[in-house]
Computed example of a mutant assay.
Amino acid sequence: MNKGCLGIGVVIAAIAVLALIWGSGVYNKLVSEDENVARAWANVEADYQRRYDLIGNLVATVENAAEFERGTLTDVIEARAKASSINLTANELTPENIQKFQQAQNELNQSFLGRMNFLQENYPQLTATEQFRDLNAQIEGTENRINVSRTRYNEAVNQHNNKVRKVPNNLLANIFGFNPKAPFSSVSGAEVAPSVRDEFNKG
């Protein structure tokens, strides 16, 4: 074998090794970004689960108040069941699925918080209890946690999508099935504050 062929072989081998190193680095970064999105989504779901659990506490609290009619919580219970029935994995974070999830959560939020405000206005003997005050504080904290988790999820999605869509990373992303994820965005009508009394009287 002459020196020319040997030199070409060395160059090709060096290019192949560099390509392998580059490809491995890109792949590992894509995996990390994908895992970050999955973790951020799990945190979103965990905070929504916290709210579901608090709604159960609300039901138990108001059902123990003799003056309060249990039927007024029907919509809250139904909205809770609907919201908890939509579960997404990290591979299902498409715009359509995120919209369905968010719509269900929005309906639950309006129903839940609307009735909480109604209780505070119309049942002072209930809102004066320590249990109800503690529950109210937990709800406020939970809503803040949900907002933080959604913001962090959107940050993780933005970082992931930048990685999988930019050249040359997108070449390997397409080969290995790393797809863009859908961020949270406000649902239609979210810019208008709901009427608490109207929400309560829907049922």
Results as ranks from 00 to 15, higher is better:
residue 123 Y to H: 05
residue 60 A to W: 00
residue 100 K to A: 12
residue 150 R to Q: 08
residue 99 Q to A: 14
residue 113 L to D: 11
residue 75 D to L: 11
residue 88 L to N: 01
residue 146 I to G: 04
residue 49 Q to F: 07
residue 69 E to L: 05
residue 138 Q to S: 13
residue 148 V to P: 04
residue 128 A to R: 12
residue 134 D to M: 08
residue 85 S to R: 05
residue 151 T to F: 09
residue 50 R to F: 10
residue 76 V to W: 03
residue 104 A to C: 02
residue 48 Y to P: 00
residue 57 N to L: 00
residue 129 T to F: 06
residue 148 V to M: 07
residue 82 K to S: 04
residue 113 L to R: 11
residue 58 L to T: 01
residue 69 E to V: 15
residue 97 N to V: 11
residue 146 I to M: 02
residue 120 Q to C: 08
residue 118 F to R: 10
residue 98 I to N: 02
residue 112 F to P: 02
residue 68 F to H: 06
residue 125 Q to G: 12
residue 119 L to F: 08
residue 103 Q to V: 00
residue 120 Q to M: 12
residue 140 E to F: 05
residue 135 L to I: 12
residue 78 E to T: 14
residue 116 M to K: 11
residue 78 E to N: 14
residue 144 N to P: 00
residue 80 R to S: 01
residue 148 V to F: 13
residue 73 L to T: 09
residue 147 N to L: 12
residue 137 A to N: 13
residue 92 E to K: 05
residue 142 T to I: 00
residue 73 L to R: 05
residue 106 N to V: 14
residue 107 E to I: 07
residue 153 Y to N: 06
residue 49 Q to H: 08
residue 85 S to Q: 01
residue 52 Y to L: 07
residue 123 Y to W: 09
residue 57 N to W: 06
residue 149 S to T: 06
residue 75 D to Q: 12
residue 117 N to R: 14
residue 136 N to L: 14
residue 126 L to Q: 08
residue 137 A to L: 13
residue 136 N to Y: 11
residue 101 F to D: 00
residue 114 G to M: 04
residue 64 N to P: 09
residue 87 N to I: 04
residue 93 L to T: 00
residue 126 L to C: 05
residue 117 N to F: 14
residue 146 I to Q: 03
residue 65 A to H: 15
residue 93 L to V: 02
residue 110 Q to R: 09
residue 82 K to H: 07
residue 67 E to F: 12
residue 64 N to S: 15
residue 67 E to D: 15
residue 70 R to T: 15
residue 119 L to K: 06
residue 115 R to P: 04
residue 102 Q to S: 14
residue 47 D to G: 06
residue 53 D to W: 08
residue 53 D to R: 03
residue 131 Q to I: 10
residue 47 D to K: 14
residue 56 G to W: 05
residue 143 E to W: 00
residue 52 Y to H: 04
residue 128 A to S: 13
residue 114 G to V: 05
residue 151 T to R: 13
residue 109 N to P: 08
residue 89 T to R: 10
residue 108 L to F: 07
residue 46 A to I: 09
residue 90 A to T: 12
residue 139 I to D: 07
residue 121 E to H: 03
residue 84 S to Y: 04
residue 62 V to T: 03
residue 86 I to N: 02
residue 116 M to F: 09
residue 59 V to F: 07
residue 107 E to Y: 06
residue 153 Y to M: 01
residue 135 L to K: 01
residue 52 Y to R: 03
residue 111 S to D: 06
residue 84 S to G: 10
residue 151 T to G: 08
residue 68 F to V: 15
residue 115 R to F: 05
residue 89 T to C: 12
residue 70 R to Q: 13
residue 141 G to I: 04
residue 62 V to F: 02
residue 61 T to W: 09
residue 141 G to K: 02
residue 126 L to A: 09
residue 87 N to D: 09
residue 106 N to H: 13
residue 63 E to N: 15
residue 70 R to G: 15
residue 144 N to Q: 07
residue 64 N to Y: 07
residue 115 R to D: 01
residue 102 Q to R: 10
residue 102 Q to V: 01
residue 68 F to N: 10
residue 143 E to T: 00
residue 72 T to C: 02
